[in-house]
Lab assay of single mutants.
Amino acid sequence: TTIHVGDLTLKYDNPKKAYEIAKKLAKKYNLTVTIKNGKITVT
């Protein structure tokens, strides 16, 4: 599972963990989490 945050690309083997991290990042920086085709993007 890949999380895209701006220019950063973070890879995680565990999709659930990746989603949790994405949610935390989104909350911290007041951003939105988008999931599309298995890719998690924080914008």
Rank of each mutant, 00 (worst) to 15 (best):
T1N: 08
T1R: 06
T1P: 06
T1L: 12
T1H: 08
T2P: 04
T2V: 11
T2E: 10
T2Y: 10
T2Q: 07
T2R: 05
T2N: 05
I3H: 03
I3V: 13
I3C: 12
I3G: 02
I3R: 02
I3S: 02
H4F: 11
H4C: 15
H4L: 12
V5K: 03
V5E: 02
V5C: 15
V5I: 15
V5L: 14
G6T: 04
D7Q: 14
L8I: 11
L8Y: 07
L8G: 02
T9F: 10
T9S: 09
L10I: 12
L10M: 06
L10Y: 06
L10F: 10
L10P: 03
K11H: 15
K11F: 15
K11Q: 13
Y12M: 05
Y12I: 09
D13S: 09
D13A: 10
N14H: 06
N14V: 05
N14G: 05
N14W: 08
N14I: 07
N14A: 04
N14K: 04
N14P: 03
P15F: 15
P15G: 06
P15T: 08
K16T: 11
K16H: 11
K16M: 11
K16W: 14
K16L: 12
K17C: 09
K17T: 12
K17V: 13
K17A: 09
K17Q: 13
K17P: 01
A18F: 05
A18C: 09
A18P: 01
A18W: 06
Y19L: 15
Y19E: 06
Y19Q: 05
E20F: 13
E20L: 13
E20V: 09
E20P: 01
E20N: 10
I21M: 13
I21A: 13
I21P: 00
I21C: 10
I21Q: 06
A22N: 00
A22L: 09
A22H: 00
A22Y: 05
A22P: 00
K23L: 15
K23F: 14
K23G: 05
K23A: 10
K24G: 06
K24D: 05
K24I: 13
K24S: 09
L25N: 00
L25P: 00
L25I: 14
L25E: 00
L25T: 01
L25F: 06
A26V: 03
K27W: 08
K27H: 08
K27E: 09
K28Y: 10
Y29Q: 00
Y29V: 01
Y29D: 00
Y29W: 08
Y29H: 04
Y29N: 01
N30M: 07
N30T: 04
N30S: 08
N30I: 03
N30Q: 08
L31T: 02
L31V: 04
L31Q: 01
T32C: 10
T32F: 09
T32D: 04
T32G: 04
T32Y: 07
V33I: 14
V33E: 00
V33Y: 03
V33L: 14
V33F: 07
V33K: 00
V33A: 03
V33W: 04
T34Y: 11
I35G: 02
I35K: 05
I35S: 05
I35V: 12
K36H: 12
K36D: 12
N37M: 09
N37F: 12
N37L: 10
N37H: 10
G38V: 02
G38Q: 06
K39L: 14
K39T: 15
K39H: 15
K39R: 13
I40Y: 05
I40K: 00
I40C: 04
I40A: 01
T41Y: 15
V42H: 01
V42W: 04
T43F: 12
T43M: 13
T43Q: 11
